[in-house]
Design a protein around this nucleic acid. Structure first.
Lengths: 346, 346
DNA sequence: GTAAAGAATGAACACGTTTTCAATTTCCGT
DNA sequence: ACGGAAATTGAAAACGTGTTCATTCTTTAC
């Protein structure tokens, strides 16, 4: 309101605060950095005047000298994919609480990534990078971003082989698919289900591989024949089409696992609205992820869940640990899955 | 691979590139900035060597001296809301193409915003800010972020009063709800619908106000009685509950408008799975937004759409114009809506 | 061939911080 | 009151770039 005409009020700088508080510019810097030596009343005075002048330290300048940008880069093919968006949301909240901001970068939707993007991204000097990407090795990222940046390839849908590696080269988040899958197969067995199909995600992706393998393993252990696989790509549309194929070209199934919840929605809609089958009476459906939409009445999906908040907490913990201690040996955290029973089975 | 032990390879700097190319450091800077005077073959050489050394200019340093961070701040209550996530996705793509990166900040889910967040955000020196927030005036943002930062309050769901303002104080994106609503009401009239209800969004929000008002206006113009309003908050859950109320406590309706598509999903599920009514035979449903999920077979929603790509293009255009010419008079762009007819009517 | 105009070049400065380091002040135990 | 340790302080250096400005080299017009 007190602005005049086209005048642009310049941002306050530490110098101005110092002058007004009759202290040195260094003192202002110290006032904003904890664990520095500054007389309490002086710090208080400076912070008060800073607030009056609406001053906060410039992160760019701070980054330049301290080497910490307080930016965390997130590489993602599709922000609006359900799983990814919920993950990004939780991550942003958690990181913001720790004084970091998330920097968003989009890559191709086929979960691949190009070197141009990495160079582009490096210019922003992120303190850490989380890549929701498949088909990329951590070493590739390291080469382009430099070893100083802790990197987390956060496979979509928490995909990873089931075992914790003995001596991991990079920090890892392991998801143990077994528990949830065992519960799911046990539940199906209770309903005397015989023919089980699997509508896959993108074939080569870690999440898909891990889930299909675990399903196959658990079924074999229980003496069931291996599942029929219908190829999908984690999308509603492909899962829809795959289900039609399964019943029109193939021999159908009594129960269908989908590689993710959105895929399961496609399966359900194909069964009900195109094939005229009832879920769960005629065909039972189980998904993976437990996204927020899975409890919507139209789907009410039974699904294998791994806890989002726990996952994000673990990831943030890994990042902070690594930033505080860059040379520590590689860490890994492990997460459990469990079955959430809703209406599409039973 | 060529790394040795714990050695951290430092990021290449302009100085290193200059040395290796036998030019001055200034020349390196010029090589990366178009419209600067530099012999073409020299620029080529520098860029080649830069690529070899995997060098890109440090954005923090660049921002410090040029005053341009190439960051665009986005303030959003919920990244995983369908509308917002699709908007963020498209914005990130468009901005990335222009050399900007999007910086994500989360605020409270009631679409409000606090001053602490604004101060926090200002520290990152965004070149521009887009706030997906209600209940906040541009002037408040200006006070905390400084007039140098172009600000766009991008009301969720494109909410805005229907008219273009004659002399706007800030850049604006206007959405003309009328066309789509007229088509929707006309379609319903064709089915001899008599009792129309409106499941609202958050009461005070611009989007909700604009949509309810336009619906009311168009119905009045056609001699229809005003719609019954059931209070929602843009969420599936509240729309679900509001619909139950409408039929159990209230007198029901022949057609229901929902303030947004996700709300419409809640309406549909309440009607079908809790009230045992058929859509569209017993009750017709129309949403607003046309999000990606609206064509899923379980909902197959008829809805009032305004084009996402067009919207994002307009917004980015506004931002770039403003950055190139900070003192230009306020600009406004206008978008049209139209009805997308699917299965929930007819 | 010459003068004028324009392009190319690099030294020095500026940006707003944090960090280092040496100097000063305060505190504590006797 | 005194010595030593600890806390407090500010000057100066550093971070990696873009920008300004005066200088040198090249081109153009006659």
């Amino acid at each position: 309101m007190s602005e005049e005409g086209g005048m642009i009020r310049a941002r306050a700088t530490a110098e101005m605060v110092a002058q007004r508080a009759s202290v040195s510019r260094v003192a202002v810097s110290r006032a904003f950095n904890p664990h520095t030596s500054l007389k309490p009343e002086k710090r208080e005075l400076i912070l008060r005047i800073a607030q009056e002048l609406n001053y906060t330290p410039d992160r760019a300048a701070r980054a330049l000298v301290s080497g910490r940008s307080h930016l965390v880069g997130i590489i993602v093919p599709d922000v609006c994919s359900h799983w990814e968006s919920q993950e990004i949301d939780a991550l942003t909240t958690a990181l913001q609480a720790e004084g970091f901001a998330t920097l968003l970068f989009k890559t191709r939707t086929d979960y691949s990534m190009d070197e141009k993007l990495l160079s582009y991204m490096r210019g922003f000097n992120p303190d850490s990078v989380i890549a929701f990407v498949e088909n990329v090795k951590p070493t590739t990222l390291v080469r382009f971003l430099g070893r100083a940046v802790p990197i987390y390839v956060h496979y979509p849908h928490g995909g990873s082989v089931d075992d914790a590696q003995p001596g991991p080269l990079h920090d890892r988040l392991n998801v143990l698919q077994r528990a949830g899958v065992e519960q799911a197969v046990a539940l199906l067995e209770g309903y005397k289900v015989r023919r089980i199909a699997y509508v896959s995600g993108i074939g080569k992706s870690r999440a898909n591989t891990a889930r299909e393998l675990m399903l196959r393993t658990v079924m074999a252990e229980r003496g069931l024949p291996p599942p029929v696989v219908a190829p999908g790509d984690f999308s509603y549309e492909r899962a829809f089409a795959a289900t039609l194929d399964l019943f029109r070209v193939g021999k159908g199934a009594d129960a269908i696992f989908a590689a993710n919840d959105v895929g399961a929605f496609g399966v359900i809609d194909a069964l009900r609205h195109e094939l005229g089958l009832r879920v769960p009476e005629d065909v039972k459906v189980i998904g993976f992820d437990d996204i927020a939409q899975s409890h919507w009445k139209s789907y009410n999906l039974t699904t294998v869940k791994f806890d989002l908040d726990e996952r994000v907490r673990a990831l943030v913990r890994l990042i902070l640990r690594r930033l505080n201690n860059p040379d520590a040996p590689a860490l890994q955290e492990t997460l459990q899955t469990r079955l959430v029973v809703r209406g599409t089975v039973g």
